[in-house]
């Protein structure tokens, strides 16, 4: 007579598979995965790869919600699969898909080229207001100045916000939540003087005005970055730039 806790629980994991060499379109495959209460969805997918189908492809690294590699759609919601637990779905079946709105390279692996280009385009580094020599020493910043941007610097580039953003899905050129959050992080840094340079992108047709304030990007962010806030603050900035150029000769004259 086995002890209750010895009875192995088995959960069904439905995975969206896609092999570019053989498949016309993605299709679902269901696996029966034995699991324990401490197992994440990522561990469930790893179990499939190790014991059931070695061809299953997915990205992962740290297993502790800091590398941002293992984002997946879990029952239609963007999550880091390493901090999402199978026990919360059992006994129902759990459905795992590649992050929404990105092209699928293979199985759960998405093509992030567009996102990387966007990260580059926002000039994600401090552009000093004026040249500064070593002899002038370090920059000093007050806690208030740090508070302005700290939250926006917590992004781990997991792209869950893009998978949550229908406007990005409808128009992949939209600069989108995470890149704008990072842009804002530099714009509001007291050491930075690059706001004008970055404005070209913010106010452009690929810029912030694609956003319709759905707000779901901030909802799914595992690091509480609130990218929706960054995007919408920059709508205000772009609008000020738009209207003030008629008033002040400098504003957006470029």
């Amino acid at each position: 007579m086995p002890h209750m806790s010895d009875i192995q629980k088995v959960i069904e994991i439905e995975v969206l598979r896609y092999n570019p060499e053989t498949d016309k379109a993605p299709s679902s495959q269901v696996f029966e995965v034995p699991f324990t209460d401490d197992m994440s969805v990522l561990q469930g997918v790893q179990y499939i790869k190790d014991y059931l189908d070695g061809s299953l492809s997915f990205r992962w690294s740290c297993r502790m919600a800091i590398c941002g590699s293992c984002g997946m759609m879990i029952n239609g919601v963007p999550h880091l699969s390493c901090e999402t637990f199978l026990r919360d779905y059992y006994p129902a079946r759990v459905r795992v898909e590649a992050l929404n709105h990105f092209p699928i390279e293979r199985d759960l692996v998405i093509n992030m080229e567009g996102f990387i280009n966007k990260l580059e385009s926002i000039q994600p580094y401090i552009i000093p207001k004026e040249p500064r020599t070593l002899a002038q020493g370090e920059y000093l910043q007050t806690p208030e100045q740090l508070n302005l941007y700290e939250q926006f610097s917590s992004c781990i580039n997991c792209m869950l916000c893009y998978a949550a953003c229908p406007q990005f899905g409808l128009n992949p050129d939209f600069i989108g939540p995470a890149a704008t959050a990072l842009l804002h992080r530099y714009n509001v840094d007291s050491r930075d003087g690059g706001k004008e340079e970055r404005m070209d992108l913010v106010r452009s047709e690929e810029g912030v005005f694609h956003c319709t304030a759905v707000g779901y990007c901030s909802e799914v962010c595992p690091k509480h970055v609130d990218p929706a806030n960054a995007v919408n603050q920059n709508k205000t900035n772009a609008a000020v730039d738009y209207f003030l150029r008629f008033v002040s000769p400098k504003g957006g004259a470029k």
């Binding site: 896609y18 390279e105 229908p166």
Partner: peptide, 26 residues
């Protein structure tokens, strides 16, 4: 051998309660 697959957006607003609410308030 790469052939990235782009999924269609049809009916996206019906697939998540958050988006259903969004469409209602729009």
């Amino acid at each position: 051998k790469r052939r990235p697959y782009v999924r269609p957006m049809d009916g996206w607003w019906r697939k998540n309660p958050y988006f259903v609410e969004y469409m209602i308030h729009e």
